[in-house]
Amino acid sequence: MTELVAAQLVVNSRMIYFGWTPADPDAVAALVPAGLKPTPNRQVFMNQYVVDDPGQTSGFGAYSLTYLGPDLSGVDAPDGITPGRWWTHYFNSSPVVRDYAAARGVPATAGTTSIEVRGHRLVATTEADGVPVIRTTARVGRTGDAVNRGQLRYLTKLDGKLISGNYPFVAAPVDPFEVESLEFLDRDHPVYALRPADPLEVVWGFYSPRSSFAYPGGESVLD
């Protein structure tokens, strides 16, 4: 495993994070590498978030990001419940963050994410090469006293080895929260393989205007 640089801290990002069942389960399964297994329902995760100010990070600066991919079986997060996750797409606006992620085997490419909230309506749009490829519309409420906390587990491949990373997080979710639509806008883009089933079936999710996490946490080579 290559030498790793210091971990980074991000605080109070605006984040919508959820999962769904896909329209083409076989296409999703085909994106999972040998040595890993997708979940039985081939569910997909996606995180769209924005870091508005350089003061919210320990060294990354301001940036926006959308990442997504299949959930995995048999490599759960430290809580023993949340599935580990395999990145297939990672659209990041910052060259600094893209370089940092790519050094860990993340498929980092250029892209931007915007999140607009007007009243109770949230619209998150992901662009690649200046072209919108994903748009999420959700109904959101206000943050209360609830706090989501824990650690997520992401898998990457580096120098021919599978790398497991734990990512601690703390987020204040809004209530209510409901994903009303999820649109994959470009049939010719590879990310279209992860589009949702119709009707949309969201299996978990939240929106938080104050989501904080370490990036990355502990990492190890997967046996």
Rank of each mutant, 00 (worst) to 15 (best):
M1S: 15
A6N: 13
M15T: 11
F18S: 05
G19P: 04
T21V: 15
D24T: 06
P25K: 03
D26Q: 13
V28I: 13
A29W: 00
L31V: 08
V32H: 12
V32E: 10
L36A: 07
T39P: 00
P40F: 03
V44D: 08
M46P: 06
Y49A: 06
V51N: 01
P54K: 01
Q56F: 00
Q56Y: 00
S58T: 12
G61L: 06
G61V: 09
G61I: 08
Y63L: 02
T66C: 09
L68V: 06
D71E: 13
G74F: 12
D76L: 10
D79Y: 06
D79V: 07
I81V: 15
T88V: 14
F91C: 01
P95C: 13
P95Q: 13
V96K: 15
Y100C: 05
A102E: 11
A103R: 15
T109C: 01
T113C: 12
S114W: 04
E116Y: 00
H120I: 02
L122W: 00
T125C: 03
E127V: 10
I134Q: 07
T136Y: 05
V140G: 01
R149H: 13
Y154G: 15
K161Y: 05
I163V: 15
F169P: 12
V174G: 00
V174N: 00
F177P: 06
F177H: 06
F177G: 05
V179P: 13
S181K: 12
E183H: 08
D186F: 07
H189Q: 04
Y192K: 03
L194I: 03
P196S: 01
P196T: 00
E201H: 14
V202Q: 09
G205N: 11
F206A: 09
F213Y: 15
G217Q: 10
S220N: 09
